[in-house]
């Protein structure tokens, strides 16, 4: 049985709005202007037990709304959904015993207290006995490397440390499904890597399904096998991450800074030069990884001069989504 089954799910929010000015305000008192915002527009998908599924899309695409419906917090306007055999909005509390959630922008740990207090509280809320809770906290502390952080008030932790504690807390009751809403938001590269590794390991070890929303293509590459891309509340792409990478994430951006000035006719074979900042000794290049391997570009860049600094990045996800969306519209 799939862990999640969603069929034609829609969610429409009613929002009041009024024009600027006093007259409009008075008018709005008697005849409020209400408009409907369709946050989710008829999406359908399935997710297998133990699967790592990525949910991406720009702001306002409907990712968080979908997650909130799947946890039972929001009622959908229409459509069906089943999560681990439960209808979330009708069986919210029964479902809660089997799922874990992390909303990256909303901490669930008690801010002024050490994380261990929240973890102990969760043990009680999920009805574990004290011995089980203790054992589980030790297990998670090891997996997320937070042994030394548990006794520190949460407000004194760095964002990366706090997020590791957050994810650990969401796994306390051994959920079968983990819903992560932007878990890596605001983290630096090392902290992101750290948290991704821990999530991947725990998911594999305990066969936890992970549904992850993110802005960051790196999260998908590191964690997910399959991806769903949402745009304006609709699914515009649904396939394996490897396929996505092959067809869309094919170019890389490279920024290099040299120790000496760059020649005005600077060029590296197989790459497109986007910008040369001569006074700052810098260059910006783009290349297609299908035609030019990363190693060869790096080799040529170092041959061209003494490299002081180098950054390689994926094109922004918005660009990829725009391309996919454009393609979806062409296909339609």
């Amino acid at each position: 049985m799939p862990a999640i089954q969603v069929k034609n799910l829609t969610k429409t929010f009613q929002t009041r709005h009024k024009a600027a000015g006093l007259t409009a305000s008075v008018r709005a008192l008697f005849r409020p202007q209400v408009s409907a915002v369709e946050a989710v527009r008829g999406i359908s998908f399935e997710m297998e037990a133990g699967e790592l599924l990525g949910f991406i899309g720009p702001n306002g695409a409907g990712k968080s709304t979908t997650i909130k419906i799947l946890t039972g917090i929001l009622f959908p306007t229409s459509g069906e959904a089943s999560v681990l055999g439960y209808t979330p909005w009708r069986q919210r509390r029964q479902l809660a015993y089997h799922i874990g959630t992390v909303f990256g922008q909303r901490p669930q740990l008690w801010y002024h207290l050490p994380a261990i207090d929240t973890l102990t509280l969760f043990g009680k809320i999920y009805e574990l006995d004290d011995r089980q809770t203790k054992r589980r906290i030790a297990e998670l502390a090891e997996a997320f490397e937070i042994q030394d952080l548990l006794e520190t008030p949460v407000r004194k932790l760095s964002l990366g440390q706090r997020m590791r504690c957050e994810v650990a807390a969401s796994l306390l009751h051994k959920p079968k499904l983990l819903l992560l809403d932007e878990p890596s938001i605001g983290l630096d590269v090392v902290a992101k890597q750290h948290i991704r590794d821990a999530i991947r390991e725990m998911a594999a070890r305990e066969n936890v399904g992970v549904l992850l929303t993110s802005h960051d293509a790196g999260d998908l590459e590191a964690l997910c096998k399959r991806v769903i891309i949402l745009h304006h509340g609709q699914i515009v792409y649904q396939d394996k991450v490897s396929t996505l990478k092959r067809s869309f994430l094919t170019s890389k951006l490279v920024e290099v800074r040299y120790a000496q000035q760059v020649a005005p006719d600077f060029e590296i074979a197989g790459t497109e030069t986007l910008k040369i900042a001569r006074e700052r000794y810098g260059v910006k290049l783009r290349f297609d990884t299908r035609r030019t391997p990363v190693e060869s570009v790096l080799a040529r860049l170092t041959e061209a001069g003494d490299v002081v600094d180098i950054t390689i990045s994926d094109p922004p996800l918005e660009e990829v989504i725009a391309a996919i969306y454009a393609q979806a519209e062409r296909n339609a």
């Binding site: 909130k68 946890t71 039972g72 917090i73 919210r92 509390r93 029964q94 809660a96 015993y97 799922i99 959630t101 909303f103 922008q105 909303r106 669930q108 809320i125 999920y126 009805e127």
Partner: peptide, 14 residues
């Protein structure tokens, strides 16, 4: 308003 209610509603208590 700030959305933190999401955490209060997805736990197994009333």
């Amino acid at each position: 308003k700030d959305g933190s209610i999401a955490y209060l509603l997805n736990k197994p208590y009333h």
